[in-house]
Amino acid sequence: MVVPLIENWAKGAALEVQEYVRLVRAAVVGVFTSPRYGHDIIEQFDVIGVGSLTVVLLTGFFTGAALALQSGLTLDQFGGRAVVGRLISASMIKELGPVLTALMLTGRVGSGIAAELGSMVVTDQINALRVLGTDPIRKLVVPRLLAGFLMAPVLTIISDFVGILGGWLVSVYQLQISSGIYWSSVTQALYPQDVWMGIIKPFVLGFVIVTTACHVGLRTTGGTKGVGEATTVAVVTGSVAVIAVDFFVTKILIAAMY
């Protein structure tokens, strides 16, 4: 009774992985070969990049501000309030900026992609595209992949900056640290490797978020209920993948750069 269940689960999981790999391969080939749909690529840069700006700005700002409040309290115990900037910049650039931006993108962009592609599947629009001579991977996945891959680092850098800015506001007005001390402390703890880590990680996370959402969306079945389920699965899978991939990428980058 249990063995067939495990066997079915394993088969299903293997099939999902196989289909995901096929999608990723086709999308990567689509990036480097013609035809490309230029206006769809530009549109997705706007939707994924510009469209996510508000949520990323707010998340980054309040994370930096909260971090300053918390670390100010802790550092006070050691008389180290003046180095709060170090802690904020290191935390935001190396870890919180990339991961929180990626999680926000998963919630906003991943769910949107899964819902949009899922609706297109269940209403036969994907089949209509194929019959009209369009490869859905090139038309729908490649523009989203390019936008997610390239805009995630840009959004992360913006998030890092406003996070440090939020930390500065709290440090100056709440913790009574002078601006000069804060900003010099921000740059003191940063090494070039930290900056590289903060820039490289979002490329990988952006890729993972978009490909996961496209895969889940394109495999939607079961009408509008299926679209709802696909959206949930895309967000849950994407969020877990972001955290897990972040760990492995961090491990690889530490081994390679430090």
């Binding site: 609706s119 209403t123 036969d124 629009q125 089949n127 209509a128 595209l129 194929r130 019959v131 009209l132 001579g133 490869d135």
Partner: peptide, 19 residues
């Protein structure tokens, strides 16, 4: 198959228009 589809038109149930 894309070349074959160049001479095929299909009308889907519910239309399948791009919304």
């Amino acid at each position: 198959m894309m070349a074959v589809r160049a001479d095929l038109g299909m009308i889907f149930q519910e239309g399948a228009l791009f919304d």
